[in-house]
Design a protein around this nucleic acid. Sequence first.
DNA 1: GACCTCACTTGAACACGTTCAAAATCAAGC
DNA 2: GCTTGATTTTGAACGTGTTCAAGTGAGGTC
Lengths: 236, 236
Amino acid sequence: MSFEAESSDASARPSSKGERTRQRIIETALDMFAERGYDKTTMRAIAAEAGVSVGNAYYYFKSKEHLIQGFYEQATTRHAELTPQLLEGKQTLAERIEAALLAWLDIAGPYHAFAGQFFRNAADPASPLSPFSEESTESRDRDIALYREVLEGSKTKVPADMADILPEMLWLHQMVVVLYWVYDNSPGQEQSRELARRTAPLAARVVALSRLKILRPLVKQGEELVRDFLITRRPA
Amino acid sequence: MSFEAESSDASARPSSKGERTRQRIIETALDMFAERGYDKTTMRAIAAEAGVSVGNAYYYFKSKEHLIQGFYEQATTRHAELTPQLLEGKQTLAERIEAALLAWLDIAGPYHAFAGQFFRNAADPASPLSPFSEESTESRDRDIALYREVLEGSKTKVPADMADILPEMLWLHQMVVVLYWVYDNSPGQEQSRELARRTAPLAARVVALSRLKILRPLVKQGEELVRDFLITRRPA
DNA sequence: GACCTCACTTGAACACGTTCAAAATCAAGC
DNA sequence: GCTTGATTTTGAACGTGTTCAAGTGAGGTC
């Protein structure tokens, strides 16, 4: 239960010797993961390739899993960079959601081969890599903010009381697509793209319909549920 | 990529010497997992406690992870046994869903400590332990069938075309609760029980509302989506 | 009884992630 | 240049999951 954030003080001393060593290690690691997979890449091999000792790698990264965090950060950062330009000109909510989802699939595509191994570790709640963990807060919030942008740029009117939970819900939607993608072994993960395309307009329609009077109580309850269990009380 | 089903030929020769050894190992393992957690329980310790050699444990179970399958099977079996009697007298769909969910939480409760490890495996698409995998078909179908019973015993009318996908959807609902439970570190996992209680009537209401004319196209599309992506094309 | 077969069992050996005490290097003050 | 303390680096050693060549023994065949 330690709360040091070894891996996020990257900005502490920009290019001290230590910082350069750290970079060398993480880059070597990600390269090797992409090339021969997570399990097949040993810490000894990473250390050797990076020209340091095993112990030294552990001086900078608490565990092998912590090396993966680099991938997660890289992915969400690129997602945040790439999506806005894709959103330009797109007016409907459905189009915008679809664009955001497909952008993610594009970015993560090259890593699909070792995504399974990545997710295996991410799914462990005790792992610092879990998308719900403390350590992932930064990446996660960046991604949720992206969906706020998706919503705000569209013409669809959103019930006031739902406005601030919707980004989180769209992010959850993305997580579902990602989950499917991890399991997707169709060539080029085309099925996942298809899922994104078909699922986006549906999500948009749900948002639009949430204003119907008959659905009011249901929506209200759902909203409270998300607020109580996902946002305020989030465990771990 | 071998497809032997070592762990499911349990019924092959009911009480041969080997079968008894296998039982001894799995029982010892589950006991020890529940008592001191998955990671803290070494294969050497299991073997010693069961009175066999390490290699012998590996003769019956391909890996330490495969021992967990025993937990999954045991849990779904007990869930199927316990739930029906809890359903008696319960008429509304909400009550029935809640009963099924709470029953699951009761059964899984003692194993919460090592549930994270279990889920870590469930999340790996390549693992035979994934709830979506071939090897888990039996347990999963048993659980889905349970929800068919939940539905059929209630007074709520269900649109004909949705009747056969609804059990699968309620099972998915359960998986969401289970996911929350895995991450839940509140004392006694009380938050998960609360989630089940609040979520059950909501699910029931959604089922009921799905008959509304205005929602018809949305529901239809959703149904097709589930059918296309979850049932027929399920990957891996 | 000798021989064979094959399910079952053994435990030493291996590869890996991880730890740690100690060494080496560096930075700063004098 | 020397001292001192912090930072960085080392590699042997530990505990773990897993493998495997070799062994055991109960039953069948001649």
